[in-house]
């Protein structure tokens, strides 16, 4: 009887010590939920959600301070992914934060640009190159289409254009949509 109690106590102590050690030794510093939310957000860094970037918004969602429907670039698909990750009901995009738009690209009219560097300071991903009193231009491949450079420009020389469809990024349309023009033609 005594041996059994002693053995159990000993085991409990050993495992307790082991668990305690593991808890401090292998402690996870970062909040994994935040990382997973960040992985879903489109990283446009447009701040339309009301937070100064995608990570702060992800942290706010994780803390429960922000709702999951405040990211217009992520759109409906993004909201659905967040809802699934956090096990919540998906909801429509909050209208006060903006509307879902096709992906855009900033283009600087280099004839008009006065080289004021304000857009360079505004760009969250350093996608604009140029120097004071020198012409600026957008690195197409790095632009996230956040529109943050449009407002600061004093000469209104930045346009947001839709990303052009080329042979390389063209996508097959969904079949129903593909067939409908023919159907319409047959009916009309």
């Amino acid at each position: 009887m005594l041996t059994a109690i002693l053995a159990m106590t000993l085991l409990a102590l050993v495992f307790g010590a082991l668990l305690g050690y593991a808890a401090t030794k292998f402690r996870v510093e970062d909040d994994p939920v935040v990382e997973r939310i960040v992985a879903i957000l489109p990283q446009t860094q447009c701040a339309q959600c009301g937070y100064p970037g995608c990570r702060p918004y992800a942290e706010a969602i994780a803390k429960g301070e922000a709702d999951i429907n405040q990211c217009p670039p992520g759109g409906e698909a993004g909201i659905r992914a967040l809802a699934e990750l956090l096990d919540r009901e998906p909801k429509p995009l909050s209208a006060e934060h903006g509307v879902e738009k096709p992906k855009l690209l900033a283009v600087i009219d280099e004839q008009t640009c006065i080289g004021c560097t304000l857009c360079i300071q505004a760009c969250p991903v350093d996608a604009i190159v140029g120097a004071a009193k020198q012409m600026h231009t957008v690195i197409e491949a790095e632009c996230t289409g956040c529109e943050l450079c449009v407002a600061p420009c004093p000469v209104n020389c930045i346009d947001m254009v839709e990303v052009p469809v080329t042979v390389r990024n063209w996508k097959w349309p969904e079949p129903e949509k593909w067939l409908s023009p023919m159907k319409d033609a047959a009916n009309g």
């Binding site: 960040v38 489109p42 990283q43 970037g53 990570r55 991903v125 996608a127």
Partner: peptide, 17 residues
């Protein structure tokens, strides 16, 4: 491709911060 671009944007944003 979008995902790869987003990761790139995130890295650039973090580097900028």
């Amino acid at each position: 491709e979008e995902r790869a671009k987003a990761d790139n944007a995130r890295r650039r944003h973090e580097a900028r911060q």
